Computed example of a mutant assay.
Amino acid sequence: MIAPESPAEPAIAPSAGPGVLDALEERLLGERPALTQVEVAEQAGMSLEAARELWHLLGFAHAEPEERAFTDSDVQALKNTQALINLGIITQDSQDGLVRTLGRSFARLAEWQVSLLAETALDTGIDPADGILALADEVMPKVEDLQSFIWRRHVLNAASRMLAVAGNGDRASNRAVCFVDIVGYTSRSRTLSDRELVGWLEAFETAALDTVIEHNGRIIKNIGDEVLIVADTAEEAAAIASELTRRGADPDDEFPAVRAGVAYGEVVTRLGDVFGPVVNIAARLTSVARPGTVLIDRGMYAALTGSDSEDTDDADREHTDGLPYRLRRVRRVSVKGYSRLHTWALQPRD
């Protein structure tokens, strides 16, 4: 399930009072805050400036110099960060982006989890403040274990892909990039309440994720009504895009109508995201694709067919014999940043 950008309702009721917040603070941090930021930096063996920079990059609010807002866990966190820097895992070039990404990701996850707990408490007639304390006492240890397990599994998968594709640790490699965009999202969203809209998007994301995993792809991120997908092979990306557009065209399927653009070539991976012209081209093709269609670029055509021929439609038919798709040449597309892209429509054979 993908976390929404912001919670639909406040996580803690305004009437909760400072007593509940004090108790929650102690339970989550392990002790009552008793250290200033100066003391934390000194105990961690780090300069105050470096400690403040990391604190801000993680997305936390500014603390006054004499404010006792920190605990021994903050000291240990700084020590761990310094150890990673000393080992060369966190470099000066990567520090800002890495730490900011961690802070932003966990902030969104925490907002969603606390909001979900508060909604559950309200639905069952429990005071939200009691629900928040239950999170710290009973739910939090289980959530921590689950998050650690999921993280370790994803690290293993990412390392396996890197070793299989690159072998030498390079961050640039040939991959297929696919954007899938909901058709008519703006008009549909106007007819739904906030909760209905979140539920609709989550159903779309869950169904898309099932298809992506089935065909060995990976969802990089959700951008509102759009999903960015990466696959190691052109065939996997073609299968994903074809299946999602097929489902969207089925009137008996609740999956919304979508359109897709797929490009293949060298992609740079950084902090879990992907960059490069191939990503831009896939996005541009999606913006001009008709509802229920999949547009692919020249790189995808060559990867699927083993040919870079552009002569005739007869050549397209020749090169696609035996494939589960038909590739129909369409007029060259001109989009922002790219003029006259060589483009084909990917259509599954009946």
Rank of each mutant, 00 (worst) to 15 (best):
I2D: 02
I2M: 07
P4C: 11
E5A: 13
S6E: 14
P10A: 05
A13K: 06
L21W: 07
R27V: 13
L29P: 01
L29F: 05
P33F: 07
V38A: 09
E39D: 08
A44I: 13
M46S: 07
R52S: 02
L54R: 06
L84K: 07
L84W: 03
L84P: 01
I85F: 01
G88A: 06
Q92A: 08
D93K: 10
D96S: 13
T101P: 00
S105N: 09
F106Q: 10
A107E: 13
R108Y: 01
L117K: 00
E119F: 00
A121S: 14
L133V: 14
L135H: 02
A136R: 01
A136Y: 03
E138G: 10
V139K: 00
E144D: 08
S148L: 14
L156K: 03
A159N: 08
M162Q: 13
N168Y: 06
G169S: 03
G169D: 01
S173K: 01
N174P: 08
R175M: 10
V177I: 15
V177K: 02
V180T: 13
D181A: 07
T186C: 02
S189H: 07
T191M: 12
L192D: 12
E196W: 04
G199D: 12
G199L: 10
L201P: 00
A203F: 12
A207D: 04
D210P: 05
I213D: 04
N216K: 12
G217H: 02
G217R: 05
I223R: 05
V227I: 15
I229S: 03
A234K: 02
A234Y: 01
E236K: 09
A237G: 11
A239R: 15
G248V: 15
D250A: 11
D252E: 13
D253H: 10
E254P: 15
E254C: 12
F255M: 14
V258T: 14
V262I: 15
Y264P: 05
E266M: 11
V268K: 00
R270M: 06
G272M: 00
G272W: 12
V274T: 03
P277F: 02
V278S: 01
T286N: 10
S287Y: 02
A289T: 14
G292I: 15
L295D: 06
S307D: 08
S309Y: 06
D311Q: 06
D314G: 06
A315K: 00
E318C: 02
T320D: 07
L323G: 09
L323S: 07
R329E: 02
V330S: 03
R331C: 03
R331V: 12
R332Q: 13
S334G: 14
V335T: 15
R340V: 09
R340Q: 07
H342N: 04
A345F: 05
L346R: 04
Q347W: 09
